[in-house]
Design a binder for these strands. Structure first.
Lengths: 257, 257
DNA sequence: CGTGAGGTTGAAATGAGTCAACAGCTGTGG
DNA sequence: CCACAGCTGTTGACTCATTTCAACCTCACG
Protein backbone atom coordinates (compact mmCIF):
# COMPACT_ATOMS: atom_id res chain seq x y z
CA UNK A 1 0.00 0.00 0.00
CA UNK A 2 1.73 3.14 -1.25
CA UNK A 3 1.46 6.73 -0.23
CA UNK A 4 -0.73 8.27 -2.96
CA UNK A 5 1.24 11.49 -3.03
CA UNK A 6 4.34 9.53 -3.88
CA UNK A 7 2.38 7.65 -6.53
CA UNK A 8 1.34 10.89 -8.05
CA UNK A 9 4.75 12.53 -7.97
CA UNK A 10 6.39 9.42 -9.33
CA UNK A 11 4.18 9.56 -12.39
CA UNK A 12 4.12 13.28 -12.93
CA UNK A 13 7.50 14.60 -11.93
CA UNK A 14 10.98 13.36 -12.49
CA UNK A 15 11.87 13.08 -8.84
CA UNK A 16 14.55 10.49 -8.27
CA UNK A 17 13.85 7.33 -6.31
CA UNK A 18 15.92 8.84 -3.52
CA UNK A 19 13.66 11.86 -3.39
CA UNK A 20 10.56 9.74 -3.42
CA UNK A 21 11.83 7.58 -0.60
CA UNK A 22 12.76 10.62 1.39
CA UNK A 23 9.21 11.84 0.98
CA UNK A 24 7.64 8.50 1.72
CA UNK A 25 9.59 8.20 4.92
CA UNK A 26 8.60 11.71 5.95
CA UNK A 27 4.97 10.74 5.62
CA UNK A 28 5.40 7.89 8.03
CA UNK A 29 3.57 9.51 10.87
CA UNK A 30 -0.14 9.42 10.12
CA UNK A 31 -3.18 10.51 12.01
CA UNK A 32 -6.78 9.37 11.84
CA UNK A 33 -9.41 12.08 11.55
CA UNK A 34 -13.11 11.42 12.08
CA UNK A 35 -15.59 12.40 9.41
CA UNK A 36 -17.07 15.88 9.80
CA UNK A 37 -14.29 17.15 11.99
CA UNK A 38 -11.75 19.82 11.17
CA UNK A 39 -8.27 18.86 10.08
CA UNK A 40 -7.57 22.42 10.92
CA UNK A 41 -9.90 25.30 11.71
CA UNK A 42 -10.33 28.64 9.98
CA UNK A 43 -7.60 31.06 10.98
CA UNK A 44 -5.09 28.32 11.69
CA UNK A 45 -1.48 29.24 12.38
CA UNK A 46 0.23 26.47 10.53
CA UNK A 47 2.90 24.37 12.19
CA UNK A 48 2.71 21.39 9.88
CA UNK A 49 1.61 20.23 6.46
CA UNK A 50 -1.22 17.75 6.17
CA UNK A 51 -1.10 15.23 3.38
CA UNK A 52 -4.25 13.29 2.71
CA UNK A 53 -3.48 9.59 2.53
CA UNK A 54 -6.98 8.18 2.74
CA UNK A 55 -10.44 9.71 2.62
CA UNK A 56 -11.79 12.98 1.29
CA UNK A 57 -11.41 16.46 2.73
CA UNK A 58 -12.25 19.99 1.73
CA UNK A 59 -11.05 23.50 2.25
CA UNK A 60 -13.96 25.61 3.42
CA UNK A 61 -14.94 29.15 4.26
CA UNK A 62 -17.91 30.14 6.36
CA UNK A 63 -19.97 33.30 6.31
CA UNK A 64 -21.31 34.54 9.64
CA UNK A 65 -24.84 33.50 8.74
CA UNK A 66 -23.78 29.95 8.06
CA UNK A 67 -23.39 29.98 4.30
CA UNK A 68 -20.47 27.77 3.40
CA UNK A 69 -18.26 27.58 0.36
CA UNK A 70 -15.82 24.82 -0.51
CA UNK A 71 -13.15 26.32 -2.77
CA UNK A 72 -11.22 23.06 -3.05
CA UNK A 73 -11.74 19.38 -2.39
CA UNK A 74 -8.91 17.07 -1.51
CA UNK A 75 -8.57 13.41 -2.36
CA UNK A 76 -5.74 11.05 -1.43
CA UNK A 77 -2.42 12.40 -2.60
CA UNK A 78 -3.36 16.03 -2.08
CA UNK A 79 -1.70 18.35 0.38
CA UNK A 80 -4.40 20.16 2.33
CA UNK A 81 -2.53 23.27 3.36
CA UNK A 82 0.32 24.01 1.03
CA UNK A 83 0.04 27.70 1.77
CA UNK A 84 0.99 26.94 5.34
CA UNK A 85 4.62 26.89 4.33
CA UNK A 86 4.72 30.61 3.67
CA UNK A 87 1.66 32.18 5.25
CA UNK A 88 1.44 33.15 8.87
CA UNK A 89 -2.16 32.21 8.99
CA UNK A 90 -4.54 30.22 6.83
CA UNK A 91 -7.93 31.84 6.70
CA UNK A 92 -9.81 28.88 5.35
CA UNK A 93 -10.41 25.72 7.32
CA UNK A 94 -9.95 22.17 6.14
CA UNK A 95 -12.49 19.63 7.16
CA UNK A 96 -12.67 15.89 6.73
CA UNK A 97 -15.63 15.00 4.54
CA UNK A 98 -15.16 11.33 5.39
CA UNK A 99 -13.00 9.56 7.93
CA UNK A 100 -9.47 10.37 6.82
CA UNK A 101 -5.91 9.34 7.34
CA UNK A 102 -3.50 12.26 7.06
CA UNK A 103 0.26 12.34 7.19
CA UNK A 104 1.41 15.20 9.39
CA UNK A 105 4.70 16.81 8.45
CA UNK A 106 6.04 19.42 10.83
CA UNK A 107 7.09 22.48 8.89
CA UNK A 108 10.63 22.21 10.18
CA UNK A 109 10.84 18.81 8.63
CA UNK A 110 9.40 20.02 5.34
CA UNK A 111 11.95 22.79 5.21
CA UNK A 112 14.68 20.32 5.86
CA UNK A 113 13.42 18.14 3.02
CA UNK A 114 13.30 21.10 0.68
CA UNK A 115 16.78 22.19 1.63
CA UNK A 116 18.15 18.73 1.14
CA UNK A 117 16.47 18.32 -2.24
CA UNK A 118 15.67 21.26 -4.49
CA UNK A 119 13.74 18.83 -6.65
CA UNK A 120 11.38 18.17 -3.77
CA UNK A 121 11.07 21.86 -3.16
CA UNK A 122 9.97 22.36 -6.68
CA UNK A 123 7.62 19.44 -6.67
CA UNK A 124 5.87 21.06 -3.73
CA UNK A 125 5.78 24.41 -5.42
CA UNK A 126 4.48 22.75 -8.54
CA UNK A 127 1.66 21.16 -6.58
CA UNK A 128 0.66 24.61 -5.53
CA UNK A 129 0.68 25.92 -9.07
CA UNK A 130 -1.62 23.10 -10.05
CA UNK A 131 -3.96 23.87 -7.18
CA UNK A 132 -4.03 27.43 -8.43
CA UNK A 133 -4.91 26.35 -11.93
CA UNK A 134 -7.72 24.18 -10.63
CA UNK A 135 -8.96 27.05 -8.59
CA UNK A 136 -9.13 29.27 -11.67
CA UNK A 137 -11.15 26.62 -13.44
CA UNK A 138 -13.56 26.44 -10.52
CA UNK A 139 -13.98 30.19 -10.76
CA UNK A 140 -15.33 30.02 -14.22
CA UNK A 141 -17.68 27.31 -13.09
CA UNK A 142 -19.01 29.33 -10.18
CA UNK A 143 -19.21 32.53 -12.13
CA UNK A 144 -20.39 31.45 -15.53
CA UNK A 145 -21.53 27.87 -15.79
CA UNK A 146 -25.06 26.60 -15.25
CA UNK A 147 -25.83 24.04 -12.57
CA UNK A 148 -25.66 21.10 -14.99
CA UNK A 149 -22.42 22.26 -16.46
CA UNK A 150 -20.86 22.76 -13.07
CA UNK A 151 -21.92 19.38 -11.81
CA UNK A 152 -20.77 17.61 -14.95
CA UNK A 153 -17.48 19.42 -14.78
CA UNK A 154 -16.84 18.45 -11.21
CA UNK A 155 -17.64 14.83 -11.90
CA UNK A 156 -15.19 14.79 -14.79
CA UNK A 157 -12.49 16.48 -12.75
CA UNK A 158 -12.85 13.97 -9.95
CA UNK A 159 -12.67 11.10 -12.39
CA UNK A 160 -9.36 12.32 -13.73
CA UNK A 161 -7.89 13.23 -10.39
CA UNK A 162 -8.81 9.95 -8.79
CA UNK A 163 -7.44 8.06 -11.76
CA UNK A 164 -4.00 9.58 -11.32
CA UNK A 165 -3.81 8.06 -7.86
CA UNK A 166 -5.34 4.78 -8.88
CA UNK A 167 -8.67 5.27 -7.14
CA UNK A 168 -10.88 5.08 -10.17
CA UNK A 169 -11.26 2.68 -13.02
CA UNK A 170 -13.79 2.09 -15.72
CA UNK A 171 -15.27 5.55 -15.31
CA UNK A 172 -16.33 4.63 -11.83
CA UNK A 173 -15.31 5.94 -8.43
CA UNK A 174 -16.51 6.33 -4.86
CA UNK A 175 -18.16 9.67 -4.19
CA UNK A 176 -18.43 9.56 -0.42
CA UNK A 177 -19.79 13.05 0.13
CA UNK A 178 -23.24 14.40 0.81
CA UNK A 179 -25.26 16.43 -1.63
CA UNK A 180 -24.88 19.35 0.75
CA UNK A 181 -21.11 19.09 0.36
CA UNK A 182 -21.47 19.07 -3.39
CA UNK A 183 -23.68 22.10 -3.15
CA UNK A 184 -21.11 23.98 -1.13
CA UNK A 185 -18.44 23.16 -3.68
CA UNK A 186 -20.60 24.12 -6.64
CA UNK A 187 -22.28 27.15 -5.12
CA UNK A 188 -25.72 25.51 -5.35
CA UNK A 189 -28.42 24.69 -2.85
CA UNK A 190 -28.76 21.10 -1.71
CA UNK A 191 -32.14 20.81 -3.34
CA UNK A 192 -30.79 21.95 -6.64
CA UNK A 193 -27.87 19.55 -6.45
CA UNK A 194 -30.39 16.80 -5.99
CA UNK A 195 -32.39 17.82 -9.02
CA UNK A 196 -29.30 18.31 -11.13
CA UNK A 197 -28.07 14.82 -10.31
CA UNK A 198 -31.49 13.42 -11.11
CA UNK A 199 -31.42 15.13 -14.44
CA UNK A 200 -28.08 13.53 -15.31
CA UNK A 201 -29.28 10.17 -14.06
CA UNK A 202 -32.53 10.52 -15.92
CA UNK A 203 -30.64 11.00 -19.15
CA UNK A 204 -28.72 7.82 -18.45
CA UNK A 205 -25.40 9.65 -18.32
CA UNK A 206 -24.42 8.67 -14.79
CA UNK A 207 -25.62 6.55 -11.95
CA UNK A 208 -25.01 6.81 -8.27
CA UNK A 209 -25.52 3.79 -6.06
CA UNK A 210 -24.29 3.36 -2.55
CA UNK A 211 -22.06 6.37 -2.93
CA UNK A 212 -20.36 4.97 -5.99
CA UNK A 213 -20.57 7.08 -9.06
CA UNK A 214 -20.49 5.59 -12.54
CA UNK A 215 -20.21 7.75 -15.62
CA UNK A 216 -21.95 5.77 -18.34
CA UNK A 217 -21.38 8.24 -21.13
CA UNK A 218 -18.18 10.08 -20.43
CA UNK A 219 -18.16 11.85 -23.77
CA UNK A 220 -21.62 13.25 -23.21
CA UNK A 221 -20.79 14.40 -19.69
CA UNK A 222 -17.58 15.97 -20.94
CA UNK A 223 -19.53 17.76 -23.63
CA UNK A 224 -22.04 19.17 -21.17
CA UNK A 225 -19.23 20.36 -18.92
CA UNK A 226 -16.98 21.62 -21.66
CA UNK A 227 -14.37 19.64 -19.80
CA UNK A 228 -10.77 19.53 -20.90
CA UNK A 229 -8.40 17.95 -18.41
CA UNK A 230 -5.42 20.07 -19.43
CA UNK A 231 -5.83 22.42 -16.49
CA UNK A 232 -5.10 19.54 -14.13
CA UNK A 233 -1.58 19.38 -15.53
CA UNK A 234 -1.44 15.62 -15.51
CA UNK A 235 1.52 15.87 -17.82
CA UNK A 236 3.68 17.11 -14.96
CA UNK A 237 5.77 20.25 -14.47
CA UNK A 238 8.29 21.82 -16.74
CA UNK A 239 11.87 20.84 -16.08
CA UNK A 240 13.57 23.44 -13.97
CA UNK A 241 16.31 22.26 -11.63
CA UNK A 242 19.22 20.40 -13.06
CA UNK A 243 19.01 16.94 -11.54
CA UNK A 244 22.15 15.36 -10.17
CA UNK A 245 23.02 12.57 -12.59
CA UNK A 246 21.62 9.36 -11.12
CA UNK A 247 23.87 6.37 -10.40
CA UNK A 248 25.28 5.42 -13.74
CA UNK A 249 22.98 2.91 -15.40
CA UNK A 250 23.45 1.15 -18.67
CA UNK A 251 23.75 3.41 -21.71
CA UNK A 252 20.72 5.65 -21.32
CA UNK A 253 18.62 3.02 -19.61
CA UNK A 254 16.03 5.57 -18.63
CA UNK A 255 13.34 3.83 -16.66
CA UNK A 256 10.44 6.11 -17.36
CA UNK A 257 9.49 8.79 -19.84
CA UNK B 1 8.99 56.76 -9.58
CA UNK B 2 9.44 53.35 -8.02
CA UNK B 3 8.56 49.90 -9.20
CA UNK B 4 5.38 49.09 -7.30
CA UNK B 5 6.33 45.45 -6.79
CA UNK B 6 9.44 46.59 -5.01
CA UNK B 7 7.36 49.01 -2.96
CA UNK B 8 5.13 46.21 -1.93
CA UNK B 9 7.87 43.74 -1.10
CA UNK B 10 9.79 46.38 0.80
CA UNK B 11 6.84 46.92 3.10
CA UNK B 12 5.68 43.37 3.46
CA UNK B 13 8.73 41.19 3.40
CA UNK B 14 12.11 41.50 4.99
CA UNK B 15 14.05 41.42 1.77
CA UNK B 16 17.36 43.19 2.11
CA UNK B 17 18.08 46.36 0.18
CA UNK B 18 20.40 44.27 -1.96
CA UNK B 19 17.60 41.92 -2.87
CA UNK B 20 15.27 44.77 -3.65
CA UNK B 21 17.82 46.42 -5.89
CA UNK B 22 18.45 43.15 -7.66
CA UNK B 23 14.74 42.91 -8.33
CA UNK B 24 14.37 46.51 -9.35
CA UNK B 25 17.18 46.19 -11.86
CA UNK B 26 15.67 43.01 -13.24
CA UNK B 27 12.48 44.89 -13.95
CA UNK B 28 14.31 47.45 -16.02
CA UNK B 29 13.01 46.25 -19.35
CA UNK B 30 9.40 47.32 -19.69
CA UNK B 31 6.87 46.97 -22.40
CA UNK B 32 3.79 49.00 -23.22
CA UNK B 33 0.59 47.10 -23.84
CA UNK B 34 -2.49 48.67 -25.37
CA UNK B 35 -5.82 48.45 -23.58
CA UNK B 36 -7.96 45.47 -24.51
CA UNK B 37 -5.08 43.44 -25.87
CA UNK B 38 -3.67 40.25 -24.46
CA UNK B 39 -0.54 40.30 -22.38
CA UNK B 40 -0.55 36.64 -23.12
CA UNK B 41 -3.23 34.46 -24.66
CA UNK B 42 -4.98 31.39 -23.27
CA UNK B 43 -2.79 28.33 -23.51
CA UNK B 44 0.44 30.29 -23.38
CA UNK B 45 3.74 28.43 -23.02
CA UNK B 46 5.48 30.76 -20.64
CA UNK B 47 8.95 32.03 -21.36
CA UNK B 48 8.89 35.03 -19.11
CA UNK B 49 7.19 36.57 -16.11
CA UNK B 50 5.12 39.72 -16.56
CA UNK B 51 5.06 42.21 -13.76
CA UNK B 52 2.48 44.92 -13.94
CA UNK B 53 4.07 48.30 -13.39
CA UNK B 54 1.28 50.55 -14.56
CA UNK B 55 -2.34 49.98 -15.48
CA UNK B 56 -4.81 47.20 -14.75
CA UNK B 57 -4.94 43.71 -16.15
CA UNK B 58 -6.91 40.55 -15.59
CA UNK B 59 -6.56 36.83 -15.89
CA UNK B 60 -9.44 35.49 -17.93
CA UNK B 61 -11.01 32.29 -19.16
CA UNK B 62 -13.39 32.03 -22.06
CA UNK B 63 -16.11 29.50 -22.73
CA UNK B 64 -16.70 28.52 -26.36
CA UNK B 65 -19.96 30.46 -26.47
CA UNK B 66 -18.27 33.65 -25.36
CA UNK B 67 -19.01 33.67 -21.66
CA UNK B 68 -15.99 35.09 -19.88
CA UNK B 69 -14.80 34.83 -16.31
CA UNK B 70 -12.10 36.88 -14.67
CA UNK B 71 -10.67 34.85 -11.80
CA UNK B 72 -8.13 37.50 -10.82
CA UNK B 73 -7.48 41.16 -11.46
CA UNK B 74 -4.02 42.64 -11.40
CA UNK B 75 -3.00 46.10 -10.34
CA UNK B 76 0.49 47.62 -10.34
CA UNK B 77 2.84 45.51 -8.29
CA UNK B 78 1.20 42.21 -9.21
CA UNK B 79 2.85 39.47 -11.17
CA UNK B 80 0.45 38.35 -13.88
CA UNK B 81 1.68 34.83 -14.46
CA UNK B 82 3.45 33.46 -11.44
CA UNK B 83 2.46 29.93 -12.37
CA UNK B 84 4.55 30.28 -15.48
CA UNK B 85 7.63 29.44 -13.47
CA UNK B 86 6.57 25.85 -12.95
CA UNK B 87 3.81 25.07 -15.39
CA UNK B 88 4.41 24.04 -18.96
CA UNK B 89 1.36 25.90 -20.09
CA UNK B 90 -0.95 28.50 -18.64
CA UNK B 91 -4.53 27.82 -19.57
CA UNK B 92 -5.91 31.19 -18.69
CA UNK B 93 -5.06 34.32 -20.62
CA UNK B 94 -4.08 37.69 -19.22
CA UNK B 95 -5.48 40.77 -20.84
CA UNK B 96 -4.81 44.43 -20.32
CA UNK B 97 -7.94 46.15 -19.05
CA UNK B 98 -6.29 49.53 -19.57
CA UNK B 99 -3.13 50.58 -21.29
CA UNK B 100 -0.39 48.94 -19.25
CA UNK B 101 3.30 48.98 -18.67
CA UNK B 102 4.69 45.57 -17.84
CA UNK B 103 8.16 44.50 -16.89
CA UNK B 104 9.12 41.37 -18.76
CA UNK B 105 11.48 39.00 -16.98
CA UNK B 106 12.73 36.05 -18.99
CA UNK B 107 12.37 32.89 -16.95
CA UNK B 108 16.05 32.20 -17.14
CA UNK B 109 16.69 35.50 -15.46
CA UNK B 110 14.10 34.82 -12.78
CA UNK B 111 15.70 31.47 -12.03
CA UNK B 112 19.03 33.15 -11.78
CA UNK B 113 17.62 35.68 -9.34
CA UNK B 114 16.08 32.93 -7.25
CA UNK B 115 19.29 30.95 -7.19
CA UNK B 116 21.29 33.95 -6.21
CA UNK B 117 18.88 34.92 -3.43
CA UNK B 118 16.74 32.37 -1.60
CA UNK B 119 14.95 35.28 -0.01
CA UNK B 120 13.78 36.44 -3.41
CA UNK B 121 12.73 32.92 -4.23
CA UNK B 122 10.54 32.84 -1.21
CA UNK B 123 9.14 36.28 -1.77
CA UNK B 124 7.97 35.06 -5.16
CA UNK B 125 6.54 31.90 -3.70
CA UNK B 126 4.85 33.96 -1.04
CA UNK B 127 3.22 36.15 -3.66
CA UNK B 128 1.73 33.04 -5.09
CA UNK B 129 0.38 31.91 -1.75
CA UNK B 130 -1.30 35.25 -1.36
CA UNK B 131 -2.83 35.00 -4.82
CA UNK B 132 -4.17 31.64 -3.78
CA UNK B 133 -5.71 33.04 -0.64
CA UNK B 134 -7.37 35.81 -2.61
CA UNK B 135 -8.66 33.27 -5.04
CA UNK B 136 -10.28 31.29 -2.23
CA UNK B 137 -11.97 34.44 -1.01
CA UNK B 138 -13.30 35.12 -4.50
CA UNK B 139 -14.72 31.62 -4.55
CA UNK B 140 -16.92 32.26 -1.61
CA UNK B 141 -18.05 35.44 -3.26
CA UNK B 142 -18.97 33.74 -6.52
CA UNK B 143 -20.53 30.76 -4.83
CA UNK B 144 -22.32 32.24 -1.88
CA UNK B 145 -22.54 36.01 -1.84
CA UNK B 146 -25.32 38.11 -3.33
CA UNK B 147 -24.59 40.68 -6.00
CA UNK B 148 -24.41 43.57 -3.51
CA UNK B 149 -22.13 41.67 -1.22
CA UNK B 150 -19.82 40.67 -4.04
CA UNK B 151 -19.59 44.16 -5.40
CA UNK B 152 -18.98 45.68 -2.00
CA UNK B 153 -16.35 43.07 -1.28
CA UNK B 154 -14.48 43.72 -4.48
CA UNK B 155 -14.50 47.45 -3.91
CA UNK B 156 -13.06 46.95 -0.43
CA UNK B 157 -10.41 44.56 -1.67
CA UNK B 158 -9.29 46.96 -4.35
CA UNK B 159 -9.10 49.78 -1.85
CA UNK B 160 -6.74 47.81 0.35
CA UNK B 161 -4.65 46.41 -2.46
CA UNK B 162 -4.20 49.76 -4.12
CA UNK B 163 -3.32 51.34 -0.82
CA UNK B 164 -0.41 48.98 -0.30
CA UNK B 165 1.16 50.25 -3.49
CA UNK B 166 0.30 53.85 -2.84
CA UNK B 167 -2.40 54.18 -5.47
CA UNK B 168 -5.25 55.05 -3.20
CA UNK B 169 -5.82 57.56 -0.49
CA UNK B 170 -8.80 58.90 1.38
CA UNK B 171 -10.92 55.90 0.41
CA UNK B 172 -10.65 56.94 -3.17
CA UNK B 173 -9.08 55.30 -6.17
CA UNK B 174 -9.24 55.09 -9.95
CA UNK B 175 -11.43 52.26 -11.22
CA UNK B 176 -10.53 52.28 -14.90
CA UNK B 177 -12.54 49.26 -15.96
CA UNK B 178 -15.88 48.81 -17.67
CA UNK B 179 -18.97 47.46 -16.01
CA UNK B 180 -18.68 44.46 -18.28
CA UNK B 181 -15.25 43.75 -16.81
CA UNK B 182 -16.65 44.02 -13.32
CA UNK B 183 -19.40 41.63 -14.30
CA UNK B 184 -16.94 39.08 -15.57
CA UNK B 185 -15.00 39.28 -12.34
CA UNK B 186 -18.08 39.04 -10.16
CA UNK B 187 -19.96 36.49 -12.20
CA UNK B 188 -22.78 38.94 -12.93
CA UNK B 189 -24.36 40.33 -16.07
CA UNK B 190 -23.42 43.83 -17.13
CA UNK B 191 -26.92 45.04 -16.53
CA UNK B 192 -26.93 43.74 -13.01
CA UNK B 193 -23.56 45.31 -12.28
CA UNK B 194 -25.05 48.59 -13.34
CA UNK B 195 -28.03 48.24 -11.04
CA UNK B 196 -25.91 47.05 -8.15
CA UNK B 197 -23.66 50.07 -8.44
CA UNK B 198 -26.68 52.31 -8.62
CA UNK B 199 -28.03 50.78 -5.47
CA UNK B 200 -24.78 51.50 -3.62
CA UNK B 201 -24.66 55.01 -5.03
CA UNK B 202 -28.30 55.58 -4.18
CA UNK B 203 -27.62 54.75 -0.57
CA UNK B 204 -24.81 57.30 -0.57
CA UNK B 205 -22.18 54.68 0.20
CA UNK B 206 -20.02 55.24 -2.85
CA UNK B 207 -19.75 57.49 -5.83
CA UNK B 208 -18.20 56.94 -9.18
CA UNK B 209 -17.24 59.90 -11.31
CA UNK B 210 -14.99 59.86 -14.31
CA UNK B 211 -13.79 56.39 -13.41
CA UNK B 212 -12.76 57.44 -9.93
CA UNK B 213 -14.40 55.57 -7.14
CA UNK B 214 -14.96 57.11 -3.75
CA UNK B 215 -16.13 55.08 -0.81
CA UNK B 216 -18.02 57.53 1.37
CA UNK B 217 -18.93 55.12 4.10
CA UNK B 218 -16.25 52.48 4.28
CA UNK B 219 -17.65 50.89 7.42
CA UNK B 220 -21.03 50.41 5.82
CA UNK B 221 -19.55 48.96 2.66
CA UNK B 222 -17.35 46.67 4.71
CA UNK B 223 -20.38 45.54 6.64
CA UNK B 224 -22.35 44.73 3.52
CA UNK B 225 -19.42 42.78 2.14
CA UNK B 226 -18.44 41.09 5.37
CA UNK B 227 -14.99 42.27 4.41
CA UNK B 228 -11.96 41.49 6.52
CA UNK B 229 -8.65 42.31 4.88
CA UNK B 230 -6.74 39.52 6.63
CA UNK B 231 -6.87 37.26 3.61
CA UNK B 232 -4.78 39.75 1.66
CA UNK B 233 -1.89 39.07 4.02
CA UNK B 234 -0.79 42.64 4.20
CA UNK B 235 1.20 41.70 7.25
CA UNK B 236 3.70 39.84 5.10
CA UNK B 237 4.97 36.27 5.08
CA UNK B 238 6.22 34.19 7.95
CA UNK B 239 9.95 34.14 8.36
CA UNK B 240 11.41 31.06 6.75
CA UNK B 241 14.89 31.35 5.34
CA UNK B 242 17.61 32.27 7.71
CA UNK B 243 18.68 35.69 6.55
CA UNK B 244 22.35 36.40 6.45
CA UNK B 245 22.85 38.18 9.73
CA UNK B 246 22.46 41.90 9.10
CA UNK B 247 25.04 44.28 10.43
CA UNK B 248 25.30 43.30 14.06
CA UNK B 249 22.69 45.07 16.14
CA UNK B 250 22.44 45.23 19.88
CA UNK B 251 22.05 41.95 21.74
CA UNK B 252 19.02 40.27 20.23
CA UNK B 253 17.50 43.44 18.95
CA UNK B 254 14.87 41.53 17.00
CA UNK B 255 12.88 43.96 14.97
CA UNK B 256 9.69 42.04 14.54
CA UNK B 257 7.75 39.32 16.30
C1' DC C 1 -20.86 65.11 -37.73
C1' DG C 2 -21.07 60.35 -37.60
C1' DT C 3 -19.82 56.23 -35.18
C1' DG C 4 -19.13 53.13 -31.57
C1' DA C 5 -18.26 51.96 -26.91
C1' DG C 6 -19.99 52.26 -22.52
C1' DG C 7 -23.73 53.28 -19.50
C1' DT C 8 -28.83 53.30 -18.24
C1' DT C 9 -33.59 51.87 -18.20
C1' DG C 10 -37.86 48.88 -18.39
C1' DA C 11 -40.35 44.62 -19.11
C1' DA C 12 -40.47 39.86 -19.41
C1' DA C 13 -38.41 35.33 -18.72
C1' DT C 14 -36.07 31.95 -15.94
C1' DG C 15 -32.79 29.40 -13.22
C1' DA C 16 -32.06 28.55 -8.80
C1' DG C 17 -33.35 29.27 -3.91
C1' DT C 18 -36.50 28.60 -0.10
C1' DC C 19 -39.75 26.32 2.61
C1' DA C 20 -41.88 22.43 4.17
C1' DA C 21 -43.01 17.85 4.32
C1' DC C 22 -41.84 13.16 3.92
C1' DA C 23 -39.18 8.78 2.95
C1' DG C 24 -35.29 5.72 3.76
C1' DC C 25 -31.56 4.30 6.28
C1' DT C 26 -28.31 3.84 10.13
C1' DG C 27 -26.90 3.76 14.55
C1' DT C 28 -28.03 3.76 19.31
C1' DG C 29 -29.86 2.87 23.60
C1' DG C 30 -33.41 0.82 26.22
C1' DC D 1 -35.25 -6.81 19.25
C1' DC D 2 -37.53 -2.78 18.85
C1' DA D 3 -38.27 2.30 19.00
C1' DC D 4 -36.53 6.38 18.24
C1' DA D 5 -33.51 10.14 16.62
C1' DG D 6 -31.01 12.13 13.21
C1' DC D 7 -28.99 12.56 8.96
C1' DT D 8 -29.44 12.21 3.96
C1' DG D 9 -32.04 12.18 -0.02
C1' DT D 10 -36.47 13.36 -2.47
C1' DT D 11 -40.50 15.99 -3.90
C1' DG D 12 -43.78 19.89 -4.80
C1' DA D 13 -45.20 24.66 -4.66
C1' DC D 14 -43.87 29.09 -4.47
C1' DT D 15 -40.65 33.07 -4.51
C1' DC D 16 -37.12 35.86 -5.99
C1' DA D 17 -32.61 37.32 -7.63
C1' DT D 18 -30.56 37.70 -11.69
C1' DT D 19 -30.57 37.28 -16.74
C1' DT D 20 -32.07 38.44 -21.14
C1' DC D 21 -33.64 41.40 -24.62
C1' DA D 22 -34.18 45.62 -26.50
C1' DA D 23 -34.14 50.26 -26.71
C1' DC D 24 -32.11 54.59 -25.85
C1' DC D 25 -28.73 57.95 -24.13
C1' DT D 26 -24.18 60.12 -23.66
C1' DC D 27 -19.84 61.15 -24.70
C1' DA D 28 -15.23 60.73 -26.70
C1' DC D 29 -13.01 60.53 -30.80
C1' DG D 30 -11.83 60.51 -35.65
Amino acid sequence: MMNPLVTRLRTLTSLTEDDLQLLARACGLTLGVAARTDIHPEGYRPDSLHILVEGWAARFKLLPDGRRQIPAVFVPGDVCDLDGLLLKRIHSGVCALTACTVAVLPLTQVRELMDRSPAIREAIWWLQCVENAVSAEWSIGLGRRSADERMAHLLCELLVRLSTVGLSSENRYPLPVTQADLGDALGLSTVHVNRTLQELRGRGLISLEGRWLTIHDYDAVKAIAGFDSDYLHIEGPRPMVERHAPARLGPDASVEG
